[in-house]
């Protein structure tokens, strides 16, 4: 729906978006150039842009980006697989689900940041402590969606499938799995985003590489320009990943009525 709307608005929308960007950057520039805001604390938009351009020419930048993306991908895949397995297991076994329910809720309510130092202690300062942090974030999103997807299969579709002669195995393949995956895919934006958050936060709290590490380094020497440059890079990465996820989603959920997509 939104996509169609965007297309209809076309150039007008793009113009407004650029307008908002220009207003923010222009305001920032004027305020720092006139000294209303201290450039030491707020940096300058032009400096930030130049820093980004300089950074992307460094090989170190690309290796940091590669590490963050690797952590993100690993966290997403491991968290999704665990979430799918647990979601299925608990949705099909109501008693086990009832037993685990309070623990899952308690664990999910915990701010995951507090786990970062523990993971660093257990898994060291390499990529795996960041992956673990991302997994704890991705797992719950996928888990709850798969659980819901299995439980919410329409009773009529299920009865029809059984009348068509399907047994447990075929029901899993043709009914439960597609339903669960459709719920999971509709939360792809959130789960991929959280995988990235896990990686960056983990790096920020303790590591020797990655985008989060770059931001942390800049911050520890009061290099505000460096911090903002890191944030800009992060924002661009998120936008690119989000566009990719939208593209994948559109292909995986072709069977969905338009109104039901989250795109």
């Amino acid at each position: 729906m939104k996509r169609n709307g965007e297309r209809r608005l076309g150039l007008g929308l793009t113009a407004w978006r650029l307008g908002v960007l220009a207003l923010v950057l222009g305001g920032w520039h004027v305020l720092t150039a006139t000294g209303v805001l201290q450039p030491f604390f707020f940096s300058k938009p032009l400096d930030v842009a130049l820093r980004v351009v300089r950074d992307v020419q460094l090989p170190r930048f690309w290796s940091d980006l590669g590490i963050t993306l690797t952590e993100t991908a690993l966290a997403f895949v491991i968290g999704s697989v665990l979430g799918i397995l647990c979601g299925f297991a608990l949705a099909r076994h109501p008693f086990a689900s009832a037993v685990c329910d309070p623990y899952l809720k308690a664990f999910n309510a915990m701010p995951r940041v507090v786990l970062a130092p523990i993971f660093a202690l257990w898994l060291g300062l390499g990529i795996w402590s960041k992956v673990a942090l991302g997994v704890t974030l991705v797992f719950f999103i996928v888990f709850f969606n798969v659980y819901q997807g299995v439980r919410e299969v329409s009773p009529t579709i299920l009865a029809n499938a059984r009348m068509l002669g399907m047994k447990e195995r075929e029901l899993f393949r043709h009914v439960y799995l597609p339903s669960a995956l459709s719920w999971m895919f509709s939360s792809l934006h959130t789960s991929v985003g959280f995988a990235l958050v896990g990686a960056v936060v983990g790096e920020y709290l303790g590591s020797a590489a990655g985008l989060g590490y770059r931001i942390h380094q800049a911050e520890s020497v009061f290099d505000v320009t460096g911090v903002f440059a890191g944030m800009v890079v992060l924002a661009i990465v998120v936008l690119i990943i989000d566009a990719l996820v939208g593209w994948v989603e559109e292909r995986l959920l072709v069977w969905r009525p338009q109104a039901a997509t989250t795109a």
């Binding site: 329409s154 009529t156 579709i157 009865a159 029809n160 499938a161 009348m163 043709h174 009914v175 597609p178 339903s179 459709s182 069977w255 969905r256």
Partner: peptide, 15 residues
């Protein structure tokens, strides 16, 4: 038996 349901019974993810 073959059963034709009143409610929507087709698998929406299949053509």
């Amino acid at each position: 038996a073959g059963y034709l349901f009143q409610a929507e019974a087709l698998m929406p993810w299949k053509t």
